[in-house]
Every structure is written in C-alpha cells, then in structure tokens.
Design a protein around this nucleic acid. Sequence first.
DNA 1: AAAAAAGATTGAGTTCGTTCATTTTTGAAG
DNA 2: CTTCAAAAATGAACGAACTCAATCTTTTTT
Lengths: 203, 203
Amino acid sequence: MTGLRERQKADRTGRILDAASRLFRAQGYDAVRIEDIAAAAEVSAGTCYNYFSTKGDLLLAIVSMEVEEVVEAGHTLVTTPPPDTAQALGSLIRLYYDHSLHYLSKEMWRKAMAFSIEAPGTPFSQRYTELDAMLSAQVCDLIAALQKRGLARPDLDAKVFGQIVFNTLNQMFIEFVKQDAMPLSDLHRLSDAQTASLAGLIR
Amino acid sequence: MTGLRERQKADRTGRILDAASRLFRAQGYDAVRIEDIAAAAEVSAGTCYNYFSTKGDLLLAIVSMEVEEVVEAGHTLVTTPPPDTAQALGSLIRLYYDHSLHYLSKEMWRKAMAFSIEAPGTPFSQRYTELDAMLSAQVCDLIAALQKRGLARPDLDAKVFGQIVFNTLNQMFIEFVKQDAMPLSDLHRLSDAQTASLAGLIR
DNA sequence: AAAAAAGATTGAGTTCGTTCATTTTTGAAG
DNA sequence: CTTCAAAAATGAACGAACTCAATCTTTTTT
C-alpha cells in the first residue's frame, strides 16, 4: 500500500518540518528564508509550497505538533486531578506554560498567534484553532471532574467557567510572549494570583 | 510657535492617515500598496516610512483612533450605568461591538490584532495595547460602580472580575472577526449568553 | 542676505515570499 | 519494455514592503 510516491511525500514533509523547526529556533522566524529551509530539506523553494500554503502556515504546522503533545500530557492530568481545586488548576496551567518554550521561542509563538488570527482559513490555522478548542475543553473537563469529586460548587456551569479560565490563562500567555524580557517565573506569579482568585469563585 | 515645518508635518500625517483609512476600507488592507497610499496622500512612498514605521503600524494608528472614540463613549456609560447588572454590562459590551465595524472591516481588525501581537514594540502597537488596557479598566470601573450602587456582590474583586469579563468579550470578538461570514447579531447572541452567566456570578 | 546646518523628501534598489510554465519523476496500460 | 498520463519538483520571474544615498527645503547663524 505504501507506494514510492507516498513514501517520498511523507519523507519530504518530515524533512521540511524538521529543517524549518530547527532553523526557526536557531535563527528566528524572520531571519530564515524559505530558500534556506528548502536547502536544508534538500528540496526546492517551490516544493515547500506544494506542502505548505505559506511560510506562516508552515510555522503553524510546527506549533500545532507542539500543542498536540501538550493536549496529550494534559489528558493524563485531567483524568487524575490533584485533590485540591487551586492545585488542580495550577498543575494544568503550569503544564501548559512550562511546555510552551520547550521547542518554540517567543518569537515563534508571536508569529504563530498572529498568523492564526490573520489567516484563519489556512489548513494549519484551522488545525491550530481546533487544538486551542481542545485545550479549552480540557480545562472544562477538569472543572467537571472537580465537581464530581465534590471539590467545586456543583451549581457552576463547568463549560462556561472552564472557558473563562482558559481565556484568562490564554490572555496572560499572550502578554508573556509579547514581552521578550518577561521570564517564565513572572508568568507563574501572575497565573498563581489569578488561579487563586478563580479557585475562590469555584469552591 | 507653529512653524511651517511643523504644520506641513501635521498636514502630511493627516493626509496619509486619511488616504490609508479610505483605501483600506474600500479595497482591503492587502490589496492596497504603500505606493497607492503615498499617491493618494500626494507624498512619496519613502515619506510614509518617515511617519509610520511599517504598513502594519500605519494600520494600527488608524485602528487606535477608532478605539479612542470607543473609550470616550464608554466613559459616559460607566459614569451613568443602567440600574441592572446584566443590562449595564450588556450596554457597555454592545457599545464596543457596535462601534467596531463602523469604520473598520473585519480584515482590518484581523490584521491589526495580528500585528499588535507580532510586533508589540512598534509605536502604535504600544498605543493599541494601552487602549486595550483602558477598555479593560473601563469594565473594571463599571463593576466597581455597580458595587457602589449595591448591584454587585461587594466581596468581589472588581479588578479581577473586570479583567475576566474583558478577556471573555475580547475572545468572542476575535472569533467574530476571524469568521467573515458571522453576522454581528450572532456575536450579540453569544455575548448575551455569556453576560447572563457572568452577571449571575456578580449578583 | 548669504551661507551653513539641520531636517525631510525622494525614488531607485534590495530582499524575500510567492507563483507558474516547464521539466522530471512515478505509476498504469498495452 | 515502451508509451502515456498524472503528479510532483523546479527555479526563474514577479510584486510589494522596506532601505538609503542623494537631493531639496526649512531654519539658524553670521
């Protein structure tokens, strides 16, 4: 079933993604030209456009892989939440934040977020939006799980409140990547304060 | 004290802003070239760059003027809020949303938001971020005003809660401008539902 | 009022993302 | 094995944002 054509296609996709990911991280998104990526992936510039519609979409493909990992890691945590509301929320949020700079620079996040707003219809922009929705749903699930364990007010709409929490942490993350000088520890501090407030409303 | 040089500078700035605003709205941000703006403003392309650092920053200058108007209009409403929590919040939000498409297209909003994330250091990007903070503060002020009138739980931190409300409405607005097909009425529906939930938490 | 300095304008030139006509490679049919 | 069609790769050409050395305009100095 795996013809030569199919195998080469997958191989090229992988090489382009690898090359782009490595170069973006090493030199920055703007400093890397499509031609550089093509050269590193041993294809031509035109071929990159057979696989990814724009440079921005290629970036979003890379970012999406990262977010996929986070969604998976988050799933484990949501199914076995710590036995305290603030700590449960805090752990999930910390998981998201700490993963974020593992493979991606702030510049890459900025460009990715910008592109997903600017060009929402692009294939990987849609994928990225989906993944965002999955993260949001995960927070909702956590709150529902806490309710089930009697750690959160049962009269709360878990979906509405989960989205509120997600919007808040998302907004703080945007501020974080917008300021190159801001260290991760500051994001944690801000986040812990908000989480405490929000946990107060839940309990 | 207004020398010739100063007057010409103000005049040119105005002409560039006017031309760009008109052309962006009529033809779309991407379709308009700097040269087109320059021609319409009766200057050269290079001159546009003496006044605005990039095309994106020029757009943000235009968007900022719009947001300034909204901040002003909102101020009136916050000082004399309707005598009902949900209605007060709803009026302010409606004010923001209804103003949004008056002078600016969805594409312009998308590009502006994208640029403000992508290039946060640029002069008008900073201005735009400031204005965003002012809107957020306005929502906080409204909640504080409601507390003062006994229309909201006094034990609530107005600042924290205001930011939550602002983040929520901001996020909904982003979804709105990301989908060209979505009518303003749908945004209102979504917003009304969320506002009702949030008003419930406040009372 | 002339000369010098400071400040702005200009548009040709550079760069890089993107497109597309042409060429090459792959897979199927005879 | 040859022929043909479909799919994919290629790189030269294009377009638009942005830069910068040369030029022009305004202000200040003598």
